[in-house]
Each structure stands twice: as structure tokens, then as C-alpha cells.
Amino acid sequence: MKITVNGNGLEVQEDIKHIKGLIDFLGLEDKPLIVEHNQQILQKEAHEKAVLESGDKVEIVHFVGGG
């Protein structure tokens, strides 16, 4: 299925069914992330419940410290 992550198109396997699966797929599981799914910010507990569908828009942001 095709989704958009941070503005770029991304083809993901059908076995990635929810936001948590996407975060694991992107290798970001250990980072504290602000995740927006179709313009709705998700709390971490909701990542496993938020079902991904074709055409979804996901924004993922993490804080960094450098300056």
C-alpha cells in the first residue's frame, strides 16, 4: 500500500497494519516521537491501534539536542 511519510511517498508491505508497525519498519522504535496520523496527534498507547490505510498521511518528528 502507498502512504505518505513526512511528505514523501512510501510503499509499505501489507503486513504493516498499524502505526507501530510502521515505526518499527522505519527503525524508530527506540526514539520518543511525536506522531501525527491524518492530522491527528497520536499518544504512544494509540500507535498499536491506529490502523494504516492506503493514502494515509503520517508525520513523524523527534527532538534533537545539538546546536
Binding site: 513526512n6 514523501n8 511525536i34 501525527e36 492530522q39 496527534i41 508525520e59 513523524i60 518528528v61 523527534h62
Partner: peptide, 20 residues
Amino acid sequence: KLIAFDLWENQHTEIEVASL
């Protein structure tokens, strides 16, 4: 908005964080 970008990856993201 909270603005984040990765110049090398050509990504730009803006998130409305008022609800936080």
C-alpha cells in the same frame, strides 16, 4: 507549528502541537 526537516532525505514536516 513544530517544524522539522531532513535536508539530505528531502523531508519537511510541520505538526500542529497545540493539543499537547
